[in-house]
Design a protein around this nucleic acid. Sequence first.
RNA 1: GCGCCCGUAGCUCAGCUGGAUAGAGCGACUGACUACGAAUCAGUAGGUCGGGAGUUCGAAUCUCUCCGGGCGCACCA
Length: 673
Amino acid sequence: MVLELEKRLAQRLRAVLKEKYALDVENIPLETPPDLHLGEIATPIALQLARTLRKAPKIIAQEIVAALGSVEGFVRFEVAGAGYINAFLDRAEAAQVVAAPAAQISSKRLLHAMVEHTSINPNKAAHIGHLRNAILGDTFVRLLRAAGYKVDVQNYIDNTGVQVADVVVGFLHVEKKSVAEVRTLIAVCGDLAKIEGPKAAIDYYCWDLYANTSQWYTSGSPEENEVRKKLRYSTLHAIEQGNNETAEIADLISTAVLRRHLETMLRLDIEYDFLPRESEILHLKFWESAFEKLKQSGVLYFENEGKNKGCWVMTRPGAAAESVQDQDGPKGTDEDAKVIVRSNGTVTYVGKDIAYHLWKFGLLGRDFGYNPFFTYPDHECWISSVQGQEIHPQFGNATAIYNVIDARQSDPQSNVIQALRGMGYTEQADHYTHFSYEMVALTPRCAEELGYSISDEDKKKSYIEVSGRKGFGVKADDLIDKLIETVQPLVDEKQASSPEPVRREIARQIAIGALRYFMLKVTRNSVIAFDFKDALSFEGETGPYIQYAVVRIRNIFRKGGMDPEAELAALAELAEIGPYLSGEENEDIWSLWLRAGRRSQVLEQCIATSEPAYLAKHAFQLAQEFANFYHRHHILTEEDPARKTFLLATAAVTLRELVASLALLGIESPEAM
RNA sequence: GCGCCCGUAGCUCAGCUGGAUAGAGCGACUGACUACGAAUCAGUAGGUCGGGAGUUCGAAUCUCUCCGGGCGCACCA
């Protein structure tokens, strides 16, 4: 509602500026006044134009207001302060618009977006850092879909990397297991996990093995360590090669761990459409196609001198200006260039990534094979394969891509964008978003609670980076389990009369709500210093606070024997609701309605800035305003029938908006709690 | 050495394209359960927005500089 009114006002203002001052102003600045006494929408446009028009801002503002005339939805405009123009809404009309059933989103945006997130190396259990990635990515997918985008969700699997090799080394050379034994182990873990939970699962087993093996490389005599290092690289090569026992173990393990990751994420309502794997990017020779294109476009050149002699390299972003400067000087080699193909002819990670991203945009001229891999209640998740099924859905050919990857990888990401740009794919490069976020770290206190021994140096830090290699971190399933364990007694106490399965479901919903909100309330580029005290909180600015507001509203309608949507519809029948929305004593109610009408505005802002935190904030503030309203106005005992209908509609509209906002955040709204 | 991010209340964080009196939550203190559930609400205390300079009618927000903290800058993946 607010979004539409803002657009209408901006359009009218543009027209006025055009006819009165012959000015074309593309972006009319609109903001929210600090207080409702100053209207609902304000613009400092007159302040901005003071200089160009050589007039006092106040005079300009008055002239604009005089020229505005009447605008539908607004009752008046005022000049205030140094030259603000404040717009006042027709409150009754606005409330009716908010109350009306939401119009279907126009699917005129035919943007086909591809969001890649999670992308955990399939050699160990997922930890809290991966949770932040997956929750951010999944939430953004929900936002894009709500805005009318067609979205494919991808989870990239690096199943041939050195991390997987390390675990394979662990099985073969530390534990000295055979292929058959590994196969048995995976089966046993799978059965055990069904009874004992995630702690018995294969990804937990690998978590320890990976940490042990990493240590094993440096724990022997210098000669032994030398041998072990060589083992590591021969294992990696064998995996890349394929068709051997080592590769078979790697495939068994990475596939089993991948399944575990999908199960863990499903606990948080996170699903995927396609799992492209590194192994197919290698075996289907994506790189060879990309290499030709890169050479042809001149993005890659062969280096004949310097430290990168014998390599195919590309200029780094930002280095372009310098090389132009160097023109008259001695043609020095660009020592800083990024190596894409090594002197031994193998391709680097960035090279493979360029090939993969050409595929994403449908520019590679090759495709994966596809096999079904994981079945969700309402759709299938596909995985890449060399030879896939004949009938499969189409992936790739995206018009916009979002890569949810942590901020540490911004360098390689910008290399890929640079390559696209260099190849002339400007449009694609512009629609390539590195959806970056900062890491989740542990506070020293939290690390000690978990039983890790902390160096004195680390104790002084405000946070310590988690590390899969060291086995240092909080596992995702452990955190989810701990959240459930913490809420369950509360639910059991408050919902004592409900049957046990119902109580368990409520505890689950609350736990997931708490976790998702915890990860989403912080903006992307702030480091989360993880602490159980904050993560396990269900009070204040948390997911459960918002869920509780929903439950209280539902209780009102349950107790009154009424239906929220019917009460909302009844609002339209009321003769005059204006009086309920004006006057000092009703400002809080109007404020609640106004916020309820802001969802699409907030959604648009989230997408424009790739920042889901705004919506998390919006949901909390709406719940907070409702809690205040709830205490001040007792609805069911209201004697004036018209006012009672109005109050019920207020609760109903809040319910609808809260549930919708929570759903966009991937948080369920319990019936009771 | 180069690049990116961060520094706002005791703690954890918001503050949108510069705009009106810098906001939440937690913690502390005071108060509210005989009314739709107190996982709640009302109130009090707590800030020279890291320091300095600049641009501007106007700066937490933009520029520069310094200080402090974090992360990247391989022919590893």
